[in-house]
């Protein structure tokens, strides 16, 4: 299963990047979500796949059963998901703001910080 999930990760990355490069704010946001999904999956898969053995300690035991899933990447991803969500919200707010401030959703037309030099004076 590992190679398939690796392929899926690559697919999510490719789709995310392609969407982010589109130059349209909305598609950029979609791409951002895809990319953060891909990053989470990447860490998860890299930490090793274990089926049907969550990292919990059974009642009455002091240590988990032999061979439970790796808890470390799970903890990393859990926060990463929430942070990614926070980042997404912020990007969404920025996108909204930029759209209304500049009247366009085309990213390449947003040139407030680096205005076009007047070549055709």
């Amino acid at each position: 299963m590992e190679p398939i999930l690796a392929g899926l990760t690559g697919l999510l990355v490719a789709a995310g990047v392609y969407l982010m490069l589109s130059g349209n704010l909305v598609r950029y946001l979609f791409g951002l979500v895809m990319l953060s999904n891909a990053a989470n999956l990447l860490i998860f898969v890299a930490g090793g796949l274990t089926r049907s053995a969550p990292p919990l300690i059974e009642a009455g035991q002091k240590v988990p059963a032999e061979g439970v899933a790796n808890a470390l990447p799970q903890a990393l991803i859990l926060t990463a998901i929430v942070i990614g969500f926070g980042l997404f919200c912020f990007a969404l707010a920025l996108a909204y703001r930029a759209f209304y401030a500049m009247g366009t959703a085309k990213m390449d037309d947003m040139r407030l910080a680096e205005p076009l030099e007047d070549t055709a004076k």
Partner: peptide, 20 residues
């Protein structure tokens, strides 16, 4: 907080149609 503010953010009268 973000949800409420996003909901409250107004829509300008003339919404530019930015069909790509």
């Amino acid at each position: 907080g973000i949800l409420f503010t996003l909901e409250e953010a107004g829509v300008p009268a003339e919404q530019p149609d930015d069909e790509e």
